[in-house]
Amino acid sequence: MRTAVVVFPGSNCDRDVMNAILDMELGPVDMVWHDEDGFPERPDLVVLPGGFSYGDYLRSGALAAKSRVMKAVRGIADEGGLVLGICNGFQILTEARMLPGALLPNTSMRFICAKSFVRVERADTPFTNAYASGQVVQFPIAHHEGLYFLPPDELGELEARGQVVYRYANSSAGSADAGEEYSPNGSLNGIAGIINASGNVLGLMPHPERATLKGLIRGTDGRNFWQSIRNHFGALEANG
């Protein structure tokens, strides 16, 4: 499989994502500047990385969502390829209307940079199949606008359709209150990550790429995130 990581002015997790994918041996990674019309080679996976594209001017992700490359990103999604937005990438996907909802400032009004736990709500997606459903994993968070918002009716529909894939939990497995809902940023229903209705576009605020390299910082729960993507394409290949 082949990955394209889009680099916006102000992206700062682009190389973290590249290093995670290379470490997991998921195949070649192309770093693609936001002003390009397309990709050097057709990617199977496009990643919109974290950071502060355009300095978060206007609204987080709003200007990046209008970037030239986004037309090609939409094309990959329409063809069934995988598109992943992490943190600022999630904000960009909502601003581009490739995912529903919006990310508002954290209720604490603070930038939160912390260890966080999320519960895997579904293990039948290309981004979660290496986890068990209900498993609690640790991915760091680092954001100021992470409160997932959707008007009540639409939120109910999103939940009913099972589009909530990652939900904040208050601690890791093994402790008494493991997996109980907890919203560090005020996110509605504790939502940390959602998938589109077709199941190939995922946005999440936590950073699996920061929990991937061994010995870098504590925690390698993110390895199975990338493993899930590998499994997805492996299965596609096996089915010819």
Binding site: L58, K66, E95, G101, A102, L104, L150
Partner: peptide
């Protein structure tokens, strides 16, 4: 198109 996000 850009200056506001109609959802919020």
């Amino acid at each position: 198109d850009l200056l506001s996000n109609g959802l919020i």
